[in-house]
Amino acid sequence: MISMIMSIKGVRKHFGANEVLKDVHMDIAKGDVIVILGPSGSGKTTFLRCLNFLEQADEGQMELDGDIFSLRRASKKEIAVVRRKTAFVFQGYNLFSNKTALENVMLGLVVGRGIKEQEAEARAKQALEKVGMLDRADYYPSQLSGGQQQRVGIARAVAVRPDVILFDEPTSALDPELVGEVLQVMRNLAKDGTTMIVVTHEMKFARDVASHVIFMADGLIVEEGTAEDIFTHPQQERTRRFLRRILGENEAEQTMMA
């Protein structure tokens, strides 16, 4: 059996009368790239946010690196432990506007983890190099394009060397011509063996990079499997309909027939 780095069970969450997550589970092994697909409103983003306690789940349990945490009532200390071992990349980048790219990446190291300034700078530069942003290290977010900002956002997540990086629709806010550069950075991370959970609408990325694809709808996991399983032999009508709509009639037929 492969040992799981993160194992999530029974996540439920509701907003008012709206049940957003109904018993979602997930196992992540080291080096996995899990891609979560699904129509908007299916609870993908909420699920991801629950894993980093940006949202408090009504129920649910997370096993991370041998420790068990309640997603409903973790103590502040436990939350801090989980956040230390995970990192989040946001749809809207959420860079710190008053900090340069380098400072954005360093802050989690120096303030969050008490790493010495010099070492933190070296690590931050390494992370910026990885996303191809080292030459913009001294730029403020307001001086960077969306794609560049998101690459710094990824560097910020990479630099803290988390067990798992959570990506919440990292390319959805970008102009089409800037999507490629961000996806390329993510492909490289995957190649380096970074463990990631990615919520996205980028089908090609999902098909090429995902080690495991999860299709969610209405707060439930409808279907999961390898990229091949989901894209070529979808079992559920719900999945087929979604793929047809996203990929367009022709392309979807082609891949499903293939």
């Binding site: 956040r83 989040f88 946001f90 959420n94 860079l95 506007s97 802050l107 989690g108 303030v111 983890r113």
Partner: peptide, 10 residues
């Protein structure tokens, strides 16, 4: 930005 801060361990 607050979320980003806490997500990287601040």
């Amino acid at each position: 930005q607050l979320e980003a801060g806490v997500s990287i361990g601040l």
